[in-house]
């Protein structure tokens, strides 16, 4: 399962990311960045409502497969720029993190 499949299966909006062929190995939910940084695993889909520039940094450090902004949480302009520079895939959905995690667990 890669990010491209995830986008197609769940109808996610792509806010940032050109190459979506990144393999997904798991999923992590969390909004406290310090917490996520030390606990999310490489290859996770990270579900969060935090769309600021530090979220992008955390995504790079933790090497997650992508960020999914749940409940249509907004992505800051600065964060988008940083994500483009660092090839971080950012997706968006109107579902909440529970609904999204439940849907992902059926796919992976």
């Amino acid at each position: 399962m890669d990010v491209k499949n995830l986008v197609e299966e769940l109808g996610l909006k792509v806010l940032c990311g050109e190459n979506l062929e990144r393999e997904i190995s798991g999923c992590y939910c969390g909004d406290l960045l310090s917490w996520v940084m030390s606990r999310a695993n490489e290859g996770d889909v990270w579900l969060t409502v935090m769309g600021n520039i530090n979220s992008v940094g955390v995504a790079v450090l933790a090497d997650v497969a992508c960020i999914v902004l749940t409940e249509n949480a907004a992505l800051d302009e600065d964060a988008l720029k940083r994500a483009m520079q660092n090839d971080v895939i950012i997706l968006q959905t109107d579902k909440n993190s529970y609904q999204m995690a439940a849907a992902i667990s059926k796919l992976i």
Partner: peptide, 10 residues
């Protein structure tokens, strides 16, 4: 926590 800065990111 003992996390080092990565200047190219942050």
């Amino acid at each position: 926590p003992p996390v080092k800065n990565r200047p190219e990111i942050f």
